[in-house]
Design a protein around this nucleic acid. Sequence first.
DNA 1: CTAATATTGGACTGATTGGTCCAATAATAT
DNA 2: ATATTATTGGACCAATCAGTCCAATATTAG
Lengths: 198, 198
Amino acid sequence: MSKETHAFGDIKSPAGPGRPRAFDEAEALEKALCVFWHKGYETASVDDLTKAMGLSRSSFYGTFGNKQALFHKALRHYSRRGLKNLRDVADAGGNDPVGAIMEALANPQGGRDGCMLINCLTELAPHDDEVAALGRRHLESIDEIIARALEPSDPGQVLDKARAFASLAIGTLALRKAGVPDEQISQTLKQARLVISP
Amino acid sequence: MSKETHAFGDIKSPAGPGRPRAFDEAEALEKALCVFWHKGYETASVDDLTKAMGLSRSSFYGTFGNKQALFHKALRHYSRRGLKNLRDVADAGGNDPVGAIMEALANPQGGRDGCMLINCLTELAPHDDEVAALGRRHLESIDEIIARALEPSDPGQVLDKARAFASLAIGTLALRKAGVPDEQISQTLKQARLVISP
DNA sequence: CTAATATTGGACTGATTGGTCCAATAATAT
DNA sequence: ATATTATTGGACCAATCAGTCCAATATTAG
């Protein structure tokens, strides 16, 4: 973390003649994302990563710089995609966007691994400002999306309610990690209705 | 994690003649707790721990077995003490135990470090069954304490409401880690009233 | 005082960590 | 074909990791 190694190799620009990459950068990033998601930042070794990505160490460092840079890139990608998903779910919910969001929340993508961004927030935020800042932006966006979904059916205090709802949803991720049965989590999520429409 | 090293040294029984310990075991455990709380399990090295505890490596391994065993002991201690605190707060709250709990929640002990147990849950639970089980028991106890605090003023669905309230509170820990301002977090916690008394 | 028993400090180990380096290879543009 | 430019694999490095071991020391019971 406070390593300051700055060993950036040289990240080649993809221009000019020369041998082309034998792998897809986006695909490799996706694989790395999975490893970080499942194991966390510290526990994911460069060996784990290169193996999962199907890359040699040279390609790894040549393409992504170093472990931390790759991680930040993966996390930004995760955030962007997650927010897009949430927006899509809300939009596809028709006249009940909140209901659609809640349903999606009851069956999260990561399963027992939870939300990667929240995981990384608790693991790294106090010691990595970039992660903390990204986390803050991500949470803010979530609040806004939920607030917008709330607005039509309820005029007042939408942002406060959205924030409470989001916090409750985030809290259930911890339960999931602990192995609390899905049924109980769903039940708890239903209670979140009270926060929204009293 | 999946190391299975089983290198248990030998944990001496505190009986018989011989040189007495130059340190207080409980105090040392407390120091270790702080390190784990602040840095997490993986990032806390045995060097960090021994330095903070003021112990030599011999005393460290001789007394606590190994890093993982020390960690589990610290976490159990943390859980026990935290639940006792919560019960005390509720009891001292007089006719408004829920209000007392909420106030305590607004100024948590760990500050930006959050709740150690939740931190460890997200870091380790999927790969350490003992942590997961301890986490489940801890969360269950929290639910029960809140439910009991809720009961006098509200007869029905106390457990469901307590669970929703607890999840919301746990969610705010992530906000705190990200550096969301205290004011906003307090505001969000106030919204939790809606979950409790609609 | 002596024998027995603990604790202590620190040197040490083998494994693993993130990161570097380079010769070999492959593809391009001319 | 040739020169140029990239990528690739794998050997390699210093640092750090958790954990072991032992001689030196301190304390007790008798």
